[in-house]
Every structure is written in structure tokens, then in C-alpha cells.
Amino acid sequence: MADTSTATTPAAGVDLFGVDPDEVNVVLDDVHVVYRVYEDRRPSLREALRGERRKPREIHAVRGVSFVARRGESIGIVGRNGSGKSTLLQALAGLLPVEQGEVWARAQPTLLGVGAAMQNKVSGRRNIVLGCLALGLPADEVDGRVEDIIEFAGLQEFIDLPMDAYSSGMRARLLFAIATAVVPDILVIDEALAVGDEAFRLKSKERLATVREEAGTVFLVSHALDTIAESCSRVIWLERGRIIADGEPDEIVGRYRDAQTAG
């Protein structure tokens, strides 16, 4: 694999993989993420009295990932279940502490995950207002945006229903519409587009293009390889927490697909 060496170790003397420093939006420098998970059982009374601490199991989910993301790039991340994709995105969004290495970014990334529900008992409309305020929009601007967001999410009929009455696709649409109402500098999407229907897929693709045009960077994790191939300008293939390929979408997706069918 020719591109492996460029992906994991920078050539001596070449900083930032040769990218112009002004173009850089995100830098990951040898990032390791380790989960500590406790076994799903309660300590027995005897263990507790002896003061035996439960030993967590360590899961080394990301093992030394380095890359540099430019402005205007949209980067797809592919890999099998458990390859560390979602973990990497969370570290990228600053939501998970890294065990080793550094994450640098030009602005706080906005992470969109699947299954997030905001306030379940509250109407979609109020969630829009709350969401915009939580993202730091001034209150006088929020009123003007609510209708745009409702329209973008395509939820005109359901907007006054509480959010727990929504389907998972409707929720994802609403959340995507809120999170991108203010065009973010760095948008990180974890499977959140997979649940939308065809019409919404087209609309969200347009919005991702807007983020890129405004010099932002988009990261996208998805198992829908066609989505990745058509809306990304670069694809990173993760396997067991390491980058094994990084390059042109068509090429990487093709190779990934071959590897899946072969394996």
C-alpha cells in the first residue's frame, strides 16, 4: 500500500504533510484513545468490604492516528464495526479525552450523532428555539430562523408535536437542520444522515457543500458507501484503530469494498 506511509508518518522535514499552514483546519497528531469499561456486574459485598476495586478493561480503540484536514475538504471515514470510527470522531469533537497525542482545530467542531433527542417531551418548535440558543445564537435572531429550520427539516405538519412522537428519521432531520442553521466551521457527522430519506439526503448534501464553500471541513462516518463516495473529497479507511489508507474516494471505497467481499 503506497499511501500507508504518507498517512501515518510524515516524511522527514515535511511539516503538515506538505499542506499550506493557512489551509489547515484540523490536525490530529498521533492520537490514541483508550476506553476503560467496567464489567457489567456489581461487586459482591465481600469484594466491597475488602476494598477490592473493580479492574476496568482497557479498550484501545484508536491507535496512533495522524492526519491534516484542509479547508473545504469533506472527509469520509470508512471501516468495519469496531474499527474506531465513532471513537475517532468523538475525540475529534473534543468529547473524548485522548490518551496520547494532540487534536488541534481552528474552531470547536459541531458533532451530529444519531439517536440524540434533545428534549423529548417538548415540541419540535421549542427544541429548535432551545437548540439555536444553546449554540449561542442571539434571541432576536432565533425567531427569524425557526421557519427556515422547520422548512429545511420538512416537518411543517409535526412541528408542534413533542419530539418523542417523531420517527428516528424525523429526529435526525431536525437535529441536522438545527446544528447547521449556523454554518459551522467544522462539522462532524456520525451516521446521522443514514436515517434520512432520499429527498433529505439531497438537501443535506447541498448544505454540506455550503459548509465546504465557506472554508469549513466536514467529517462523515457512514456505512452507506455510496453516500461517502458521492459527497466526500477524501476518504480515510480505519482498521483496528489505525489508518490503513487515505486518499481519493473512488479508489479507497473501491478497495474497501473489495476487501469486504473478499473477507
Partner: peptide, 15 residues
């Protein structure tokens, strides 16, 4: 090994 990449000015460390 971290520290191979020197981040350009204007970037903030996350986490």
C-alpha cells in the same frame, strides 16, 4: 510519537 506535526498558528487544542 506525538509532536511530529507542528500545528500552524490559529489552531486551538481540543479536549
Amino acid at each position: 510519537m506525538p509532536g511530529l506535526i507542528t500545528p500552524p498558528a490559529g489552531l486551538i487544542p481540543l479536549g
